[in-house]
Amino acid sequence: MAIDVNGKSLETDEEGYLADLSDWEPEVATVMAGIDDCDLTENHWEVINFLREYYEEYQIAPAVRVLTKAIGKKLGKDKGSSKYLYELYPYGPAKQACKYAGLPKPTGCV
């Protein structure tokens, strides 16, 4: 599979995750969200950027429990809840947001 971003064709796996992490640019998230009929707000971007920083630092896509805790620490308690994150990313914050952020599927997610 592949998606078209800024005139380039980027390879994805069968679940839509980017094949090569280094292909990512913000437009990738916008295009992927468009496929899911999702408009990215500032709150969405906050999570995407958080995930990219987390990956850079730990080389791992966090499990949802870990993500929720870490978001609460960084962005405030009200945002560190699964309710808030599921409202933003109904397909699951770890799965959907990680995908938009160009990360692999979280370890432990089948």
């Binding site: 630092e57 730990y58 080389q59 791992i60 966090p62 870990v66 805790k69 870490a70």
Partner: peptide, 14 residues
């Protein structure tokens, strides 16, 4: 290779 040594620092969060 991926630098997974960084991941040992995430273990505490798990």
């Amino acid at each position: 290779f991926k630098n997974f040594s960084k991941t040992y620092r995430a273990l505490e969060m798990y």
